[in-house]
Simulated assay, not measured.
Amino acid sequence: MRVDIYRRPEAEGRFSYLAVPEGKPIPQEATNVDWSQERRGVEMDEGQGEWAELGIPEPGRQLREKGYAITSVEEQPRD
């Protein structure tokens, strides 16, 4: 699946990532946060158990249920 990836800074030099299907807008419930575009049209395997480099667990489930996948608070990567 091709996704657009957004990033926002968190505490202690960590980041959260948001992945939405390519070309789709950020869902309304996530637009109240300052996301900056990181990458566009990235091919990712949503069948993986996690996207470790983004700290996103169960991306396929999140994309099906919410229309986007987001970093887990426990998994926030450092830059």
Rank of each mutant, 00 (worst) to 15 (best):
A19K: 01
E58V: 08
R39I: 02
P57R: 14
S16L: 05
E65Y: 04
R40N: 02
T31V: 09
R7I: 04
A30Q: 12
E10P: 01
R8S: 05
E43V: 02
R39F: 05
R64Q: 14
N32P: 01
V3Y: 00
G47Y: 08
T71P: 01
A69H: 02
R2D: 11
A30K: 13
L63F: 14
D34Q: 10
D79T: 06
Q76P: 00
S16K: 02
G41L: 03
F15N: 09
W35G: 04
D34F: 07
P25Y: 09
E22M: 06
P59V: 06
L63N: 06
E58I: 07
Y68V: 04
E29C: 09
Q62P: 07
M44S: 00
R40F: 00
G55A: 09
A11H: 12
P9D: 15
E65I: 04
P9G: 13
P21W: 04
G67H: 08
D34H: 10
Q48I: 07
R61I: 13
G23D: 06
W51Q: 06
P77G: 12
E22Q: 13
P77C: 12
R14D: 01
D4N: 01
G55K: 08
A52E: 13
R61W: 12
W35A: 03
E22D: 11
Q28T: 13
G47D: 11
S36Q: 10
A69L: 04
R61Q: 12
Y17I: 10
R78K: 13
A11P: 04
P9Q: 14
T31W: 02
Q76R: 15
E74C: 05
V33P: 00
R61S: 12
V73D: 14
Y17H: 15
R61V: 15
A69K: 00
Y68I: 06
Q76E: 14
E75N: 15
R40I: 00
R2M: 08
E10M: 15
D34T: 07
E75D: 14
E74Q: 15
W35T: 03
P9S: 15
R61K: 12
D34G: 08
P21S: 09
F15R: 06
Y68C: 09
P25R: 09
P59S: 06
A30L: 13
P59I: 05
A11Y: 07
A30I: 02
P59L: 08
E74D: 14
G13S: 11
L18P: 07
Q37T: 05
V20K: 05
E58H: 08
P27F: 10
W35N: 05
E58D: 15
E29Q: 13
E46W: 01
L18M: 09
R8A: 07
S72Q: 10
R39K: 14
S36M: 06
W51S: 05
S36C: 02
Y6T: 03
I5K: 04
I26L: 03
R14Y: 02
Y17T: 09
M1I: 03
E65D: 15
L54M: 11
K66P: 04
K66L: 15
G55E: 07
M1F: 05
M1R: 04
R8T: 07
L63W: 11
E12V: 07
G47I: 01
D79F: 04
L63G: 06
M44R: 12
